[in-house]
Nucleic acid binder design. Structure first.
Lengths: 263, 263
DNA sequence: CGAAAGCAAATTGTTGACAATCTCGCGGAT
DNA sequence: ATCCGCGAGATTGTCAACAATTTGCTTTCG
């Protein structure tokens, strides 16, 4: 029995195989698997596997894949199915830049409009994030950091920008070969606390600057991580013409199932 | 014979009924119809009609509708098909705000990176826009203005932000009951020229300020237009509890075919 | 031994028929 | 006269079978 990238997800007896509900289940499965690093850039999404994992019918799965493509998380190619996108360094930089633009706007607006309830919500998230870091629960910390940035955008009250930010954040795990932000190297909570303080004082400029600085740090860290990994890979087998060649490569695509098996 | 919302679009003999190509044809038809004000907020998109208009098979049409929903242009509801979205005043404001955020970022970046070729491209577009205005070709002027804003974003070199801006601009015709920007009331080319000059001098701040100011003016004009229209409609029949009620209304949905027929 | 051709399995794309649901006009009752 | 139920038609949702394409392996030839 082969292990699946997706969690067991035993279906409650009455769960429908199709419909809008099933479509959402598929989308969540993929997004969660990407966020948990069970799916990596370039991995193939095979309809049968998704069907077995989520219990959804083919129609629901195909719709989900089209929507995931619209979210920019997967790439559809004719007769060859769906791949998780493989952003190169340039595309990754653009995504960070877009995140900065969206969050800057949100923070400037938020400083002028946030109320005590909103501040409380943000504080609760960052405190939970801090506790998760201290206890070494990187998975939770990662999720809470994500919640924090998303909550800032949501509280700013711009739905289209928030949806866009959500899409960008779903791509984030694909920008670097391994998780960054849960390790000792990178710890965002101090800046998160400072950002909340700035918002409290109504200083939107400072909040925006703090946040953009954090995102720049994160970007730098992830790029270094990528470069290090790329060098490691290039050392033993230095014959590849370009890192982009994996896209047409054959057996490399097979490296799925959560653990990479480089040949 | 009933008139269609969609242009004739005689299919070349070898045109396929399905596949990626047909999907794109359907998407373009809908986007074009919205931009040309042949489709209005709340209109239903019926699979059979789309099929007849574009020559696409049902599969291609359903995929296209899912993608259009992802673009935020249509709303899908179970067993009831696809409707063009009906943004209320608040949602419309958010879309303008999002546009300002994206274009501000693009212009600040562009001022530092644009070259003579880019400036030439922008100048060509605005000059054509100006000529179109003078000759009263509002359709062309509208399209060229759109091209101008999109070109600025594209030249700034951020693909995700440009795609997002494209989606936002596709929704723009739905934010006001009738075309704004081709009438004598609103003329954007002087500001467009000034923005190019600012970019030429490397003054990104001024370019961003000019553009945001233009967008604010446009927003104000469109909101006034909306308010005026709403008042007109409310005068004869003042019993509606909320403008949002049309969403569940029955016969009002039937008001399609380019000309509205209020009962 | 390496490379090209070919074959079989796996995967995706498409179609048509059928089922489920919604819409809207019609008729009857209050 | 108005409201409620109802049923035919229209529209969307689902499925299973089939077609087309790709993929990876094997075979064969140089």
């Amino acid at each position: 029995m082969k292990p699946s990238v997706f969690p067991a997800l035993d279906l409650p007896n009455g769960t429908r195989r199709s419909g809008r509900e099933a479509e959402g289940r598929v989308i969540n499965s993929v997004v969660d698997a990407v966020n948990a690093f069970r799916l990596k850039a370039g991995d193939r999404l095979i309809e049968r596997e998704l069907s077995e994992a989520t219990g959804a019918g083919r129609m629901a799965i195909r719709n989900a894949l089209v929507r995931l493509a619209g979210m920019g998380l997967v790439e559809l190619s004719q007769n060859r199915g769906a791949l998780i996108i493989q952003p190169d360094a340039d595309e990754a930089g653009q995504m960070f830049e877009a995140r900065r633009a969206v969050e800057e706007m949100a923070l400037r607006k938020l400083a002028a409009t946030i109320d005590e309830a909103g501040l409380g919500e943000l504080r609760d998230i960052v405190e939970a994030e801090d506790r998760a870091y201290e206890k070494g629960r990187v998975e939770d910390a990662y999720r809470l950091s994500r919640s924090f940035h998303l909550a800032m955008s949501r509280l700013a009250g711009n739905a289209p920008l928030t949806r866009f930010l959500e899409d960008l954040m779903n791509c984030q795990p694909l920008l670097s070969p391994e998780r960054v932000g849960g390790t000792s190297k990178f710890h965002g909570t101090p800046t998160h606390f400072a950002t909340i303080e700035a918002l409290e004082r109504g200083d939107g400029e400072r909040a925006a600057r703090l946040n953009s600085g954090l995102l720049c740090e994160l970007e730098t860290t992830m790029m270094q991580e990528s470069a290090r990994k790329a060098e490691e890979v290039a050392r033993p087998a230095g014959k590849e013409k370009s890192s982009r060649n994996r896209r047409t490569g054959s057996s490399a695509q097979k490296a799925r199932r959560g653990l990479q098996s480089p040949d």
